[in-house]
């Protein structure tokens, strides 16, 4: 029973970070209607920013949130403005050009990082990396708990931003109906740029929070992109609440799968859920909650 509870806790904490990754993806998905296949790679870049700050300047990973997030926001803005937006105008046969572009961007990011830092596994060790505390007989990793707390805080902040502020309303309007939003005076081009920046900043936050408890290496982008799209499909495309549910579900499923089936099945579990959701609940959790 203890083992089971321990797995649930671990999965849930991981799920909080996954939710943050998923929200970034789902925002971009909702507003632009494209799937950002460079999502994990952008997260990897943020992790390297954190790594560099820590190993060269001794900055605490949590403090480097203040650097990594704005930096990645800018990177996202540049990508959207100069690489993705020009594609909207181009007359092409395939509308998926933007998706292909994100694949290319992901490759470039991975290789540039590999170029600079080599393929080695790097890790950031802090005083709290291995620290745990106990509630009953269940152990909690400090780093993961703090990460979970920050992830929840950002998720809630994002939620209020989207619902209450003017900019948030514009983003939601663009996601719902682009043409109508233009008619209402929303500068949708600017909105897409900001949204991509925000999505990237959110995934950068998740990456930075992951640094103390995970390895940093250039190829880490791909698997996390895969996780991000599984989360978005699980939660329903474009749904913020869905992304939270999707993230937690994936976190729990991975932990359970890794314990009861074996480590090598960890990735398969996510993909199996993905296929099952496509089969039996196309549209994801959004279908159930209508949010």
């Amino acid at each position: 029973m203890d083992v089971f509870l321990q797995i649930l806790v671990a999965g849930f904490l991981k799920g909080g970070l996954y939710a943050l990754i998923g929200i970034g993806m789902t925002l971009i998905m909702g507003v632009m209607g494209i799937i950002n296949l460079a999502h994990g790679q952008l997260m990897m870049v943020a992790m390297y920013v954190t790594f560099v700050l820590h190993s060269f300047f001794g900055v605490d990973p949590y403090l480097s949130l203040f650097v990594a997030m704005p930096a990645l926001f800018l990177l996202g803005v540049v990508i959207q403005k100069y690489l993705l937006n020009p594609l909207i105008k181009a007359e092409t046969i395939l509308p998926e050009n933007q998706v292909l572009m994100t694949v290319g961007i992901g490759m470039v990011l991975t290789e540039v990082i590999r170029f600079i830092f080599k393929s080695d596994y790097k890790s950031v060790t802090t005083s709290y990396t291995g620290a745990t505390f106990f509630l009953g007989s269940i152990s909690f990793s400090w780093a993961l708990v703090v990460a979970f707390g920050i992830a929840v805080a950002f998720t809630v902040a994002m939620f209020f931003f989207l619902i209450k502020t003017d900019l948030g309303r514009s983003i939601r309007a663009t996601a719902q109906d682009k043409d109508a939003a233009i008619l209402m005076g929303v500068n949708t081009r600017r909105i897409t740029v900001i949204t991509f920046g925000l999505g990237t900043a959110l995934v950068a936050c998740a990456g930075t929070l992951l640094v103390p408890v995970y390895y940093v290496f250039p190829d880490l982008g791909g698997p996390f992109t895969a996780k991000a799209f599984i989360i978005t499909i699980l939660g329903g495309l474009g749904s913020t609440v869905g992304a939270i549910f999707g993230g937690v579900t994936l976190g729990l499923a991975e932990s359970l799968g890794a314990t009861y089936l074996g480590m090598e099945y960890e990735d398969i579990v996510g993909l199996t859920i993905f296929v099952l959701v496509l089969l039996f609940l196309p549209g994801g959790f959004k279908r159930l909650t209508k949010v």
């Binding site: 007359e91 572009m101 290319g104 470039v108 290789e111």
Partner: peptide, 28 residues
């Protein structure tokens, strides 16, 4: 040395460039 090591990078850059400049390909 850099060029040989960076062949995947060149590949990625090519994807980005082709999509930007020739969205319908050389024949298209």
């Amino acid at each position: 040395d850099v060029l040989t090591k960076g062949h995947v990078l060149g590949f990625g850059l090519l994807v980005v460039l082709v999509i930007l400049v020739l969205p319908n390909g050389i024949v298209g």
